[in-house]
Each structure stands twice: as structure tokens, then as C-alpha cells.
């Protein structure tokens, strides 16, 4: 018996080392592209052309100021546009998704189940399939080259709604709502002052996801925004790609990709534990 335990614990030890070795390989695979991005964003065009290096260069500040001063690519204007669109989208998305989820969760009315099922069904239908009508309608409403078509639609976000609904089922007892009613609180007031504070963890997680989804969106903005002053970051990235690569200052090129990627990366590093929990929380349980 004792022999057996010893043998199996030795066996377990080897298995553990093997597991860690594989995990480390995939960690390197995940981090390597971002490390090269950082290294090359800090090197000059000539240094990058000379070949690959694992050691950061000294041109980080110079590449940065070259990008700032660029006459053709207004990457910081793009950054600002992206922040405005993604920020407002995230706010609208979490507030109205919580409101929609609350309507289904707290009230009993006819068609309640039908409406809930409807939202679940439209959840997986891609937005691209209505893009033609979307652009057509936005054009006739005079909303092309504005941020409205990129911000307002996030009010109807089925995925965020579903997450909020799941969260309410586990964390929002209706007794609290009843108690607020007895205290004479109006329904809308109850939602804002009693329900929303309870939803804070879910709101935070979904705000991050909504922000990132909007921040990364390339397909829809490309159809709506074409003027230089309106372009968001992904549109400038696409512009970079369409420019003549051979004539480009590679230091600046890497710096621009760096500017598009690192804000989200930093937010992620700060809030990663929270975010990973959020992914597991919103998932389907087996």
C-alpha cells in the first residue's frame, strides 16, 4: 500500500512537470508576438531591417513622436474617436441590457417567455447579414459619417442581456424589489437605486466586454466612416495595410500597432482576474 502511494505520487510529480512544460510553451506562444511588437516599436527603421532582436532598442520616444507628427495618419484622432464610441457603447449597452433583463426577470406579463426566447434566438444571428439594409437606412437618415450608428445599436445587445438575466437569477432576490415597493419607491426608481447597485459586478464585467467589442470592431465602422477625421483605430490599421509597405518606416508601423493594442492589454493586465471570472460566469454550465 505504502509502495503504491509513493509510486503514484512520483508518477504524479512527473505528470505535473510535463503539464507545466506544455503550459509554458503555450504561454511563450501567446506572449511572443506582443513581445516582438514591443521590441520593434522601440527600434528604428534601419535596426528593424538589419534583423530580428530580442533586446528593445532606444527609438521608442522617436517613433512615438514621429507617429504624433504624421501628416497622413492621424492615429491619435483615431484613438480619441475609438474611446468615445467604445465608451458610450459600453455605458448604453450595460444600462439598457440590465433594464431589459430586469423587465423579463421581475415582471409577469403575457408574451414574457416568447420575448425571452426571441432574444435568445437573435443572439447568434450575425450583424453582418443586415449590413446592406443598415448602411442604406443610415445613409437615408443622414447618419453616415456620424458615430450614432456605431453607438446607439448597443442598446439592443442580446449577449449582454443574457448575461444580466443569468446574473439576476442568481443574485437578485425579488423580495428586495417587494420591500422597495412597500417603501413607496417607483418602479423606475427601484431599478436605478436598488437593482443597479446589486448588479455592479455584472455591470463592470460586461462594460469591459462591450468596450472591447466596440473598440475592436472593424466591419461596421468601415461602412459608415470614411473621412479621415472620423476614422477609428481599426480603420487606420486597415489604411496602414493598404499603404505601400515597402516605403514605410517600420518603426512607426510597429508603433501604430502598439498604440492600437496596448491600451486594451493594460486594462486586461489590471483587471484580468475579474475578466477571466466573468467569462466563466457567463458561460453555459454543462
Amino acid at each position: 500500500m505504502n509502495e503504491n502511494v509513493k509510486q503514484s505520487s512520483g508518477h504524479l510529480y512527473i505528470r505535473r512537470i510535463l503539464c507545466y512544460a506544455v503550459l509554458v510553451i503555450f504561454t511563450v506562444l501567446c506572449l511572443f508576438p506582443f513581445y516582438i511588437l514591443f521590441v520593434n516599436a522601440s527600434r528604428s527603421h534601419v535596426e528593424i531591417q538589419l534583423g530580428f532582436s530580442m533586446i528593445p532598442g532606444t527609438s521608442f520616444i522617436r517613433n512615438w513622436s514621429n507617429v504624433v507628427q504624421s501628416q497622413t495618419i492621424h492615429i491619435f484622432r483615431g484613438l480619441l474617436n475609438s474611446v468615445i464610441i467604445a465608451g458610450l457603447s459600453a455605458l448604453l449597452s450595460v444600462y439598457f441590457s440590465a433594464l431589459t433583463a430586469y423587465a423579463i426577470h421581475a415582471y409577469d406579463f403575457r408574451f414574457k417567455n416568447a420575448i425571452f426566447n426571441f432574444i435568445l434566438i437573435i443572439m447568434t444571428i450575425p450583424t453582418q447579414i443586415s449590413a446592406l439594409g443598415f448602411v442604406d437606412l443610415m445613409t437615408s437618415m443622414g447618419l453616415k459619417e456620424t458615430f450614432i450608428p456605431l453607438i446607439v445599436p448597443s442598446i439592443a445587445a442580446p449577449v449582454v442581456f443574457f448575461f444580466m438575466k443569468q446574473y439576476m437569477e442568481s443574485s437578485l432576490p425579488l423580495e428586495i424589489v417587494e420591500a422597495a415597493r412597500i417603501d413607496g419607491s417607483s418602479e423606475f426608481h427601484t431599478f436605478n437605486m436598488v437593482v443597479m447597485p446589486i448588479m455592479k459586478p455584472a455591470l463592470a464585467v460586461q462594460a469591459i466586454f462591450s468596450f472591447v467589442t466596440s473598440w475592436n470592431n472593424y466591419f461596421t465602422p468601415a461602412l459608415i466612416l470614411t473621412k479621415a477625421e472620423n476614422k477609428t483605430l481599426p480603420l487606420w490599421i486597415a489604411y496602414l495595410r493598404s499603404a505601400d509597405f515597402t516605403k514605410f518606416d517600420l518603426g512607426q508601423l510597429y508603433m501604430m500597432i502598439f498604440i492600437a493594442i496596448f491600451p486594451v492589454l493594460i486594462v486586461y493586465i489590471l483587471l484580468s482576474k475579474f475578466i477571466v471570472q466573468g467569462v466563466a460566469m457567463g458561460s453555459v454550465k454543462g
Partner: peptide, 24 residues
């Protein structure tokens, strides 16, 4: 109130998703 709170979602869904889908 259930219906009232559903208005923003369905209004936005109708304008920005459903009508575009039908015209597509």
C-alpha cells in the same frame, strides 16, 4: 412596467437591426 422597460431594446432593435434585415 415589464412592457415599458422593454421599449428601448425593441425600438433600437427594430430600427438598427430588424428593418435593415428586412430591406436587405
Amino acid at each position: 412596467w415589464g412592457y415599458i422597460f422593454l421599449i428601448p431594446f425593441f425600438l433600437v432593435y427594430a430600427v438598427f437591426s430588424f428593418i435593415p434585415m428586412i430591406t436587405t
